[in-house]
Structure formats: C-alpha cells, structure tokens
C-alpha cells in the first residue's frame, strides 16, 4: 500500500458565510511556535476588507432585530458546536502558542465558557446597562442600549482563541455585526472558529474573518464610513495611534488596546462598549 499523501490546508477568509480566498490571490505561511510550516493562510487585502464590511452591513439589520433571547440561543449553540471540536482547537492552540496540552486545554475550555457566559448576557445586559431615569415631570424616562452597527475587531495577537472569543462574543451578544482581523501569526484557531460559525445558526455575514496583517487592513477598516466602531485589541502602540486618527474622521467608537489578561473575569465593559444608549420619554397617562 502506498504512503498516504498529506491533505494540506489553505486557510480561507470567511466573508458573507462563504470561504473565499483573498481577492488578491495572496497567501502567507503560518508556522508553529518552533517555526515549522503548518499551513498557508489567505493574506487579505483592502478589497477583502471592503467586501467583509459590505457583508456585515447587509447582515446587521436582521441580526440586530432578532430578539435578545434568540441571539442568546444562537450564541449558545455555537458553544455547543465548539464543545464537539475541543481536540482540534487544543492542538491548534498548542501548535500556535507553544503551550502544554494542559494549558491549551484550559484556554480552549475557558474560551467556550466565555462564549456561554456572553450568550447568557444577550437578554440580560440591557437590564444592567439600561435604566429607568428619575425626571421632574409626568413621564417615564428610559435609557436602553442598542447595537451600534458594524464593529471591526483587530483580534489580540497573543491569545489565539481565548482573546479572540473575548473580543468577538460581546460584539455579537449585543447585536452587532463583526469584521475580525485574526492574529497574524496564529490565525488557524480563528479560521476554525469560523468553520464552526458557518455550521451554526449565526446568519451569514454577521461574523466575517480576515487573515493577514492588521497594519495593512486596519487603516482601511478604521477609515471606512460603514464601520461604526473598532476594537484595537490587536494593534501595537504605533498602529493604535494611526488607527485612532483614521477613525476620528467618521467619529467611530474606538476601544484602545487594553492589554488585559484574557483569563480574568471580563466584566461588562466590552458588552457595554458597542452600544448606543437611546433615551425615550413617555408621558404617563397620556
């Protein structure tokens, strides 16, 4: 019997629910922590970013209009699917980050737990972030959070799965659509996550993934008028300054790099970051 030939992987982008190669045709080599070749990944261009934003923009109305309860259910189902692929994620995290099996397993389970945690918040955070306000008149006065729109996420460079989930899940839980730029040197867990999302009930276009360089794609996302907010978690100091300046042109919400320890309890900071507070006055007895 002849030797079996390797099935080599070329990691694709994830745009509008499909897995296209980069429009530019470019790829780059992904290596493990020792420098050994693992796979080729698509090197996204500005036009891929453009397409991803168009897809996210198109997906946003339906996703944001879904009931919070439904969003929570859909996100919980993603966690169910992640649970079935723990082994794959553990091996990818190990290869990428060079950690022990035990630590990789801890990271993957923490990521799934975090996804469930955010899924649970989907229909609860509004009670915490919103409020009923005291006013001097015969009115009810409510402040309620609404999703801001399309959020660009530069995923953390140092935490290939937990960092990604910690930045992506809150964006989705509050009803936004996302365009994610994966960690450049370790994109494979992110690509595998999109393969999970594609088979879950998250509508096509709600999550879009670009693999490649945040330095190259970031400025196009930051200046893009159809992007409403940007998370700079994966940008270094210099890039963050550039992107903040670009984002100012269209008054985006910007979350500067927080350098947080992804293993700690995230709190509601990220969940309340990507919303607009709408306050309504309603006459009493009117």
């Amino acid at each position: 019997m002849s030797e079996r030939i390797d099935v080599r992987r070329t990691a694709k982008l994830f745009i509008a629910g499909a897995f296209p190669r980069s429009e530019s045709g470019r790829t780059y080599e992904v290596n493990d922590h020792l420098g050994a070749f693992v796979a080729n990944a698509a090197l996204a261009s500005r036009k891929d970013a453009r397409d991803a934003v168009v897809a996210a923009r198109a997906a946003f109305p339906k996703w944001s209009a879904a009931t919070a309860y439904n969003r929570g259910q859909v996100l919980y189902r993603v966690a169910e699917l992640l649970e079935g692929r723990v082994e794959q994620f553990v091996s990818e995290v190990r290869a990428a980050e060079g950690v022990t099996a035990k630590r990789a397993t801890a990271q993957v389970t923490a990521a799934i737990d975090r996804w469930v945690w955010y899924a649970g918040w989907a229909d609860k955070y509004a009670q915490v972030v919103g409020s009923s306000n005291p006013v001097a008149g015969p009115y009810f006065n409510f402040s309620v959070p609404e999703p801001t729109g399309v959020v660009a996420i530069l995923a953390p460079q140092e935490s290939s799965l937990l960092g990604l989930v910690s930045t992506l899940a809150p964006v989705l839980a509050s009803g936004n659509a996302a365009v994610v730029v994966a960690a450049r040197l370790m994109p494979l867990p992110a690509v595998s996550l999109t393969e999970v999302l594609a088979t879950s009930d998250v509508p096509a276009g709600v999550v879009n993934l670009l693999t490649g360089s945040a330095d190259e794609i970031g400025p196009w996302l930051a200046s893009h008028a159809a992007v409403n907010a940007i998370d700079l978690a994966g940008a270094d100091e210099d890039l963050a300054i550039i992107l903040e300046r670009e984002a100012a042109g269209t008054l985006k919400r910007v979350l500067r790099p927080t350098r947080e320890d992804w293993k700690t309890d995230p709190g509601l900071q990220r969940l309340s970051q990507w919303v607009e507070i709408k306050t309504v006055w309603h006459p009493i007895g009117g």
């Binding site: 453009r50 934003v53 200046s223 893009h224 008028a225 159809a226 992007v227 670009e246």
Partner: peptide, 14 residues
C-alpha cells in the same frame, strides 16, 4: 465617487 474623492470607503449611512 466618495471613495475616489476622499480616499476612504464610504457607507450607506452617507
């Protein structure tokens, strides 16, 4: 047209 004149992508809000 806005993309060509401003150098950055525009969006449907505009």
């Amino acid at each position: 047209r806005q993309k060509l004149s401003t150098g950055h992508y525009s969006g449907p809000d505009y």
